[in-house]
Write a protein that binds this DNA or RNA. Sequence first.
DNA 1: GTTAGGG
DNA 2: CCCTAAC
Length: 733
Amino acid sequence: MELQKRLNYGFNGYQVPATPRATRSARKRVPFKKRVEDNRISAFDLLATVAGKLLLDKESTSVSSNTSSAEDQSKVENNTVKEERRDGNQSSKLETCDQYSNDRELRSCSFRESPSLKNDTHFGLTSVVTTSDCSERSGVLKLMNGKIKNETGCLPCKVETGPFLCGASGGRIKLEFENKGPIHEELDRTDKLSIREVADTCPLEDPVVVDGKPPLLVSSDSSGKTHSYGFNNHLSSFPGKRDDLKVVSRDDDEKSSGCTYLGPIKKPFRPTPLIGDRRIRKTMTSKYLKVAPRLNDVTLSNSDENLKSAYCDRSAYKRIRSERNYPFKKRKFLHYSSVSNSDGGISSEGISDSPEQSINGNASGVYPKMRGVTGESPLLADQCKSFHSRDSHGMRAFDGVIHMVPELFIEIPESATIGSLKRTVMEAVTAILGGGLRIGVLLQGKKVRDDNKTLLQTGISRDNQMDALGFSLEPNPSQTFPSHCPGGSPLTFPCDTPLPLASLQEEAEFLLETTFFFMSLHGFETRSLYPATPGLVTRVTHDPSHEPHMPNLGHFVESDHDSAPSPTDMSLDKSRTDSKALVAVPAISVEALDVVPAHRKSKRSEVVQRRIRRPFSVAEVEALVQAVEKLGTGRWRDVKLRAFDNAKHRTYVDLKDKWKTLVHTARISPQQRRGEPVPQELLDRVLTAHAYWSQQQAKQQLKQQQQPESCLLLYNSTVRASSRSDGGEKNFG
DNA sequence: GTTAGGG
DNA sequence: CCCTAAC
């Protein structure tokens, strides 16, 4: 099912070889699988732990050494939430969420409606990762509440914010560049960045329907099936696995996995469910699961359609989610249940809320009510519609299960530079994440490196390519791991860490990976600045400003008949001074750590940008068909050379895939076809050619099958003849 | 590096 | 489009 699919795909389109391919039983896949398992065993626990730790470190300098029970932890957030029924009253919570279970759409429990959520806001953190005190976030809150002041002193921002969940997670911000003229990086400092709260227009009283499904408990899985998520499949192979920890997900059409966990969510900010069972097992000291802290999700529009946030188009969610093009969006919120089904005492609170907390001290709820995806903010809504409606993805959907998503709305003139854009986004993100990260700008999946170029020059404008714009979160080595000095590292690993770090380098590498992992979890596309190589440590110290070589936008367009419009064509002169709403950035979804970084290689995880989708034009199809008619299937390299030699972005694999889809398209009814319609004539040719070459192939195979036999016969006869002639034994060779 | 095939 | 396996 979809879920399984997701599992296999991982969160970034990478296939997680958790399950062998059904049709490839004959192939050797064991080794690979084994490899995967080994990796997991060796690093996941640590990863999770470190991830949480990193986050905490990042978010708060003072990590409370709170290893105490949930009660103690709850006190921490006392000021905002009154603790109530911590006593196994989880069932009621369930009910709260269950009431929506029948709905295809998850209704987030509003504050009012789901007191349980409201009340159970404490995280169940483990000793390993302790929850950060609310006070820790106060800074953030203030930050958001009033003027945003960059810690570095840059970008004075006005924040007219509204609901910001414990520091940002729930708030929607509008960042607006008031500077109209061309902006240089230096100018950024003087730019006025006003952040207006945009989202607070939604009445809290109204329950908001959110895409997604109500969190499900293991026991409440409608389908009766429980799925292991990600590496959970391998749990059984782990010694000491916890049966009681189960990541379950719903298997119905919605596929959203619910994450149930005992520990209440303290902050929307980091209501991160556990990364996985393994982690749970390792890091959980108390009954409450530790949740890796989660950042707010900032939804970024990405070049890949996948990244379109779905705030504005809830209805589209379903459709979208069926697609698998959104690496991290795909990640569902898992509900982790610290309690085993076997225990029967599943306490789960569906974190079906995306808490948006009023920053204004309205601590009334840690679990602010969830805002509707659409409409609550006219301003935002409008903007969103402009580019989200088409294919909005529902990070929000996940929110239904977990939480919130701050929406970042940025207005910036097209004349602004990439650097400005980065800074703008950075400001917002920094406020949320606490710094230590860098922002990268991606257009059409390519990183835009030149900070001095204006948006217009780069090809970023409101009218075009908005959905091609994305951001990446990158670790800023200079800040990211301040605490990783050998010896004095606050980052202590649990004793049971299965992966003792042998060297500093290893550590650095690991941390970096962890960071990526972590960031990925928060919905950012991440890209390693430092391609993991053995020399990582030294690389870490390099100037972060030196980004890895990336193709420039100008080179983005490849020589091809269907090449994308070159952004470079735009002249600077045309840059308008009027500020256009540039990007609405959706939200970072605080996603559950549902999926282990599947693509994470034991070496280093560099999240590779998925290539942008480039639908084949009719002309291309024509060329392809023609070539295949001539060359047949199975000679894709030749086809490529013959018909697509100058189309660099079309690999022979692409052509092969396209042929595959063409065949499929030709076989389905026209109503079922999507995208640019391919002339029936072509499709007919496709079928014809396919049939012909398939036949040829069959014949060939038949021949080859017969060949050996004939050879054998020949051989035998030869041997016999030889034997006969020799009158004795004779061996060849 | 290609090809095939599943996701 | 991605990814892996088999060649």
